[in-house]
Structure formats: C-alpha cells, structure tokens
Computed example of a mutant assay.
Amino acid sequence: MRCYWDEEDVWFYFEVNAQGWVTRQIELQGPELTPIAAASLDEWQQAQDAGLLDEYDNRFGITAELPVSEWQGHDPEQLTSEEFEEVWDTARRQISARPA
C-alpha cells in the first residue's frame, strides 16, 4: 500500500505481512520522488544482531514500529506486489549508489 503525507511531501510505500507488521518501507520525497528510505525489517534485525544498526538506519532508514491496525489518519492506496517491487528496486538502487 502507499500513503501520502503532504506536510513533508513524502510518499510512503509499505509491504505488510499477514499480522499487519510492515516488512519493507520506502519513503520518496518531493516532486522528484527522491528516495530517503528503503528499509527491510529482516535486514534491520540482522544489522541489530551484528551491531551495525546505526549504519543501517543512516543508510536505509527503519520500518514503522506499529502494526497497520493501530495506525490512525491514513488513507492508503492498495498496490500490487509488482508495483511495490518496482519502486523498491529503484529506491534501493539509488540509495545504494550514494556514498556511505
């Protein structure tokens, strides 16, 4: 799904598991849709276990900390998995190409 936050001019894209937890999250800002986050919960947990959480957060961001069932004030658009994957691949490629 995706949601728009007009106060910050950010599109949020979410992949959610059956329990409602965000497993991957993308944030695109401004009219150019510049990727500012493309975080995976699995990668985040691996980085935490490896003691590399700060590096991961600084590069890719974090996923939402509450399940979607507890969110208020959002009006999500549903996406296909193919639509999400296309945005994910582009955002990850752009973020990974930036100097660390």
Rank of each mutant, 00 (worst) to 15 (best):
D75I: 06
Y13Q: 01
S40F: 03
S40K: 04
E32K: 13
D54K: 13
W21T: 03
W5Q: 15
A18W: 11
D42K: 05
T63N: 00
L66W: 09
G51D: 09
F14V: 01
Q94L: 12
P99T: 08
G73Y: 14
L66I: 09
H74D: 14
L33V: 05
T80F: 00
V16T: 08
V68E: 00
D9L: 10
I36L: 03
D9F: 10
W44T: 02
L53F: 07
E77W: 11
L66A: 13
L53E: 13
A64Y: 06
G20K: 03
F60V: 03
W11H: 07
E65W: 10
G20C: 01
M1C: 08
E65H: 10
N58L: 08
N17V: 06
I36Y: 01
T90P: 02
P67N: 09
L28M: 05
L53G: 05
W21E: 02
R93N: 15
H74R: 14
H74P: 12
P31G: 15
L52I: 08
H74Y: 14
V22P: 05
Q94S: 01
A39K: 02
I95N: 02
E8M: 09
A47F: 06
Y13I: 07
Q25K: 04
E27N: 01
R92D: 01
L41P: 03
Y4H: 14
D57C: 09
L33G: 10
S96M: 07
G51K: 07
L66K: 09
T80G: 06
Q46S: 15
E32V: 11
P99A: 12
Q29H: 09
Q25G: 05
E86W: 13
P35G: 07
E7G: 14
D6V: 14
T80E: 02
N17Q: 08
F60E: 07
P31V: 15
L66D: 12
V22R: 06
L33W: 12
A37V: 02
V10N: 07
Q46G: 09
G73N: 13
P76K: 10
A64I: 01
W5C: 07
D42E: 15
E83W: 10
Y4G: 09
T23H: 06
E32Q: 11
D9V: 11
A38E: 00
W44C: 08
G51L: 09
E55R: 12
E77A: 13
D9R: 12
R93Y: 11
E83Q: 15
P67Y: 07
Y4M: 00
P99W: 06
Q46V: 14
E32F: 08
T63F: 10
L33Q: 15
Q19T: 07
I36R: 06
G61A: 03
T34A: 10
E27V: 08
Q78C: 09
R98H: 11
A50D: 15
T90L: 11
L53D: 11
W88F: 02
R93I: 12
L79M: 09
Q48T: 10
A18P: 05
Q29E: 11
E83T: 13
G51T: 12
W21F: 14
G51A: 05
D6R: 15
G73R: 08
R98A: 12
V68K: 11
D6Y: 15
